[in-house]
Amino acid sequence: MDILKTKNMTKSFGGVVANKDLSLTIEEGKITAFIGPNGSGKTTFINVVTGVHPITSGEIFFQDKEISKYESNQISRLGIARTFQKIRLFDNLSVIENVLVARKSFYKSGPISVVFNTKKFREEERQNKEKALELLDLVGLKDKAYESPKGMAYGLRRCLEIARALALEPKLLFLDEPAAGMTRDEFKVIMDLMLVLRERGITTVLVEHTMDFIKAVADWVYVLNFGEIIAKGPFDEIEKDPVVLKAYLGEE
């Protein structure tokens, strides 16, 4: 079963084509990785699918529903979550509040119930806090829930960003270079986390440069170069593909 499908997806910035006629599918429940040299259009792919950048032409289907014209927030509410290459946390909020922000669409209380502090609202607040703490526990941040994420270690900030993405209860999760700049231990934590997520049935799409990481977790790999797919398949096959080797060596 394919959870995401793109048809001739093209994105250009001015005259520069970042994604050219991408037609691909992401299989449900699996970990799919995107690799390719810098500037090959991996991050652009995530940005277009999650609605951060509007699509230039082509179509995107999520669970057979066309989402090409949707706004970023609508796409997120359908169950597509993401993290960013350069971590984007809300530094003016506490750790748990960062996670709670992504829970907003699960609240049903309107402003009136908030102002009058109704029982319904208090109950909702309690449930969502519980859920947020559960997620923080999963990524190992529970004891820091009420601290500020500002100045926290890089790896912890990355984990918090993942917890925030998971708070959307996503069906599809995009991780943009989760292992970049991490220590070996932190790296291991993220890797284990991804395997746990796969067990829970969350489809993950990964953009990564660290080959060990991909080798360990990815079920399927797409190789991009100059905005186009130049190879696809399991990692073992990709590794030996002469086209891929050329693209990487050509960059050196």
Binding site: G51, V52, E71, Q74, S76, R88, F90, K104, R164
Partner: peptide, 10 residues
Amino acid sequence: VATETCGIST
């Protein structure tokens, strides 16, 4: 941008 990806209409 991050707020939008949290499912919130800015």
